[in-house]
């Protein structure tokens, strides 16, 4: 039988679906029986989801422009 500590140790692989079948079954069994671990699993999954849903902010135009200018200078000096 898995303990809550065991579950927590395997949480990453469980979230990423990278455990082997046998372990996965045990983890599923545990998470269905243990309300605390279910909440941890659920909120961890949601944490990852909410970050993944976040668009990178557009890069400020002046920052982009200065980057391109710096590259152009470097390219010119390399080819010249």
């Amino acid at each position: 039988m898995l303990t809550c500590k065991d579950f927590l140790r395997e949480l990453n692989d469980y979230l990423d679906s990278t455990t082997d079948v046998e372990l996965r079954k045990q983890l599923e069994h545990h998470v269905n029986e243990c309300p605390n671990c279910w909440v941890i699993f659920d909120t961890s999954k949601k944490t990852i989801n909410v970050y993944q849903g976040m668009e990178p902010k557009a890069i400020p135009q002046p920052v982009h422009d200065r980057l391109m200018a710096a590259l152009e200078r470097r390219m010119a000096s390399k080819s010249g």
Binding site: P35, T43, V50
Partner: peptide, 25 residues
């Protein structure tokens, strides 16, 4: 794992249903 759990912790503090943190763990 550490990062995920720490973030989960912080976000849960903000996003949780009020009055729902009843379990000791």
């Amino acid at each position: 794992l550490r990062a995920r759990l720490e973030l989960r912790e912080r976000l849960t503090r903000l996003f949780k249903k009020k009055g729902d943190d009843v379990f000791a763990y």
